[in-house]
Amino acid sequence: MKSYLIKRLIAMIITLWLIITGTFFLMHSVPGSPFNEERTTNEAIQKNLEAYYQLDKPLFVQYVNYLKSLVQFDLGPSIKKSSQTVNDLLGRGFPVSFELGLYTLILAIISGITLGVLAALRHNGIIDYLAMTIAVLGISIPNFVMATLLIQQLAVNIPIFPVATWASPKHMVLPILALATGPMAIIARLTRTSMLEVLTQDYIKTAKAKGLSPVKIVFKHALRNALLPVVTVLGSLAASILTGTFVIEKIFAIPGMGKYFVDSINNRDYPVIMGTTVFYSAILIVMLFLVDLAYGLLDPRIKLHKKEAK
C-alpha cells in the first residue's frame, strides 16, 4: 500500500511537471511574447513582472525561477491588473468554482446512476426509452446552450430563478442544472450499459437461484459491479465539468475561477492563463488519483497492496 502510494505520488509529480513545462514554453512561445515586450502600459505591472520572471535573463533561467516559485505555491503576478497576483484571483475564485463543480458532480452522479439503473431494470420499456432519450439529448445539447435555455425559460419567461450571480442557493440552481446535464447523461448511459451487462452475468443467475429478492439482487449483487466502469470515467467527467465552468460562470456572471480564466484569455493575460492551467491540472491529477483509490476500494481484484497475503 505504502509503496503504491509513493509510486503514484512520484508519477503525479512527473505528470504535473510535464504539464507545467509544456505550458510555460507554450506561453513563452507566443509571437511577440507578452512576457518580454512592453505591451503593458502600466509601469507597476511591468516592474512586478520583471521582478518575478527576471525578464532580462535567458528563458531557461526564467523557467527555473518559475518552478522555484511554484514549489512555494506562488503562481505569479497578473499582467493586466496591477498589484494582483494569480494567487489572489484563485483565492477568490476557487471556493466559488469548487462549490459549483462539487454540487454539479454530486447531482450528475446521483441522477445519472438512478436514471441508468431504472433504464436497465426496465430494459426496452417506456422508462428505458425515456431515460435514454433524455440521455442522448443531454449529451447533444452543449452546456452553454442548456444554460441559455434555462435562463430564457426559468428566469426570463417564468421568473422563478434569478438570471445570474452566485448569491444564494436559489442562484445556484440554474448553473448547476446547466452544467450537470451533460455528465449526468454520460453517467446514465454508461450505468445502463454496464448494468445490462452485469444483469446477464452468471453470478446474477446464481443469486436468483438462491431465492434472493430482486431488490437484494440489484443493490447487493448488481449495482456495485455495474458502477465500476462508471467510477473510471469520473476523472474525465470532472475535467469536462471543469472546462464547463468556463462558460457557465461567464454566462451566469459567477465570480469563479472559470470566469477569471476566460477573462484572462480574452485579455491575453498570460501569467494568469499559465497559473490557472497549472492549478487546474493539479486538481485534475488529484481527482484521477482519488478515482483510482475509490476503484481499488470497490473492486477487491485490484490490489493496492504490494503483495497479497496468502
Binding site: 505550458t23 507554450l26 507566443v30 474525465s236 475535467a239 471543469l242 492551467t277 491540472s281
Partner: peptide, 12 residues
C-alpha cells in the same frame, strides 16, 4: 483535459 489543451493551443 481535451478542451484545456485546445484552449491553450488556441491562445498561442
Amino acid at each position: 483535459p481535451y478542451l484545456l489543451v485546445v484552449i491553450l493551443v488556441m491562445v498561442v
